[in-house]
C-alpha cells in the first residue's frame, strides 16, 4: 500500500516539478539563453498531449463499426491531431526557442578559378586524340544509334498511320435503330419536343465514337435541310451523330421552344463548350466553338414502322483532325 503511495507521489512530483537545469559552466554559449517561459511551455506540453489523444481517438473511431458520419469523425480526429501538433510546434518555435537573427555572407556569385580548372581538365584530357572531329562524329553516331534503338520499342504502343480507323462507324444500310435496352425504335415512338438516343442493332460496342445517335422529330414544314441532305429525314425524324464535332462530348441538351413563337428555335447543344446545332438545317452550327455541322444519318421507315439507316453518315464523325475532311465516312 505504502509502495503504491510512493509511486503515486513520485509520479506527481515528476509531473508537477519544473526541473531547473543548471547553466553550463562555460559562458561561451552558441545559442543565447533567454530564461524560461512557463506559460508557453505549459501550453506546448498540453497541446502535445491533446494531439496524442486525438491520434488515439482516430483509432477508436476506426474500430467502432457503423457509427454515423464515420468519415467526418475520422477526419476530425486525425486532422485535429496534426493541427494540435502544429500548434505545439509553432508555440515552441516562437516562444520557447530563442529567435536568433544572424548575418552571413551570400555564396560568391562565381568561382572563376575553379571554372578555369574544370575547363582545363576537360580540354587537356583529350590531348592523345589526333582525329578529334572524327571521334566526336563517332560519339554522335553511337549516341544517336543507341537512342534510336532505345526509343523504337515505344512504337508498339499503337498504330499511327491507320487513318481509316477514324472513319469507321458501325452504321450499314438497312441497320435498325435500337434504344438503350436493345429495343428497336419505331417511328411512332419519336415525338416532337423531346430527344432520343439510338444505337445500331446487334452491335456490341456502344462505346465506339460512331455508334450513338441523337433523334429528334420536327414538323416537316419547318425543315430547311441543305440540298445535299435533302431526304435524310424520315417523316420529320432526324438522326445525328451524338458526338460533338468540337471536342467529342455527347450532345445531351435539346433546346425546344416551349413558348413559341418568340422563343428561339429548337437546337441541339453540347454541355461541354455549348456548341449549338440547328437540327432543322441538317445540324448546322449556330453558336459555339464547333467547326463542323453534326454528321447526319439518313433514315427510312420500314413496313413494320421501324427506323432503319439508309446508309452511313454524310460526313466523318467526332472531333476535327487533319484528315477529317479528306474523304467521306462511308465505308
Amino acid at each position: 500500500m505504502s509502495r503504491a503511495k510512493d509511486i503515486l507521489l513520485s509520479g506527481l512530483v515528476l509531473v508537477a516539478s519544473r526541473g531547473r537545469r543548471k547553466p553550463r559552466k562555460d559562458a561561451a554559449r552558441i545559442v543565447p539563453d533567454a530564461g524560461p517561459n512557463p506559460g508557453a511551455e505549459t501550453a506546448a506540453i498540453l497541446l502535445l498531449f491533446l494531439s496524442g489523444l486525438c491520434g488515439v481517438a482516430f483509432v477508436v473511431v476506426y474500430a467502432l463499426d457503423r457509427i454515423p458520419h464515420q468519415t467526418q469523425f475520422l477526419g476530425l480526429a486525425i486532422g485535429g491531431a496534426f493541427v494540435l501538433l502544429a500548434a505545439a510546434l509553432i508555440t515552441t518555435g516562437l516562444k520557447l526557442i530563442v529567435t536568433e537573427e544572424l548575418a552571413d555572407e551570400y555564396p560568391p556569385n562565381e568561382h572563376p578559378h575553379e571554372q578555369q580548372l574544370i575547363a582545363d581538365v576537360v580540354e587537356e584530357s583529350g590531348s592523345r586524340l589526333t582525329r578529334a572531329r572524327l571521334f566526336k562524329l563517332g560519339l554522335a553516331a553511337a549516341g544517336g544509334g543507341v537512342a534510336a534503338a532505345a526509343l523504337t520499342p515505344a512504337v508498339s504502343f499503337g498504330p499511327f498511320l491507320r487513318i481509316k480507323y477514324f472513319f469507321g462507324t458501325p452504321w450499314r444500310p438497312g441497320r435498325r435503330l435500337v434504344d438503350e435496352n436493345g429495343r428497336p425504335w419505331k417511328a411512332s415512338d419519336i415525338e416532337e419536343q423531346d430527344f432520343y438516343t439510338a444505337f445500331p442493332e446487334n452491335d456490341p460496342d456502344r462505346e465506339a465514337l460512331g455508334a450513338a445517335l441523337v433523334l429528334v422529330r420536327l414538323p416537316k414544314a419547318s425543315l430547311r435541310l441543305p440540298a445535299e441532305l435533302r431526304g435524310y429525314d424520315a417523316d420529320g425524324i432526324l438522326a445525328f451523330s451524338k458526338i460533338c464535332t468540337h471536342a467529342g462530348c455527347a450532345i445531351s441538351l435539346y433546346r425546344t421552344p416551349k413558348f413559341a413563337p418568340d422563343s428561339p428555335k429548337p437546337a441541339l447543344v453540347c454541355p461541354c463548350h455549348y456548341s449549338t446545332f440547328d437540327p432543322a438545317k441538317g445540324g448546322r452550327v449556330i453558336f459555339g466553338p464547333a467547326p463542323r455541322p453534326l454528321p447526319m444519318l439518313p433514315l427510312s421507315i420500314d413496313k413494320q414502322g421501324y427506323l432503319r439507316a439508309r446508309h452511313n453518315f454524310d460526313e466523318a464523325i467526332g472531333p476535327s483532325w487533319w484528315g477529317v475532311r479528306n474523304r467521306s465516312a462511308n465505308p
Binding site: T71, G75, I78, F82
Partner: peptide, 12 residues
C-alpha cells in the same frame, strides 16, 4: 503539421 492537419480536416 498544419498543412497535413488542414488537408485531413478538409478531406473528412
Amino acid at each position: 503539421c498544419a498543412v497535413v492537419g488542414v488537408l485531413f480536416l478538409l478531406g473528412g
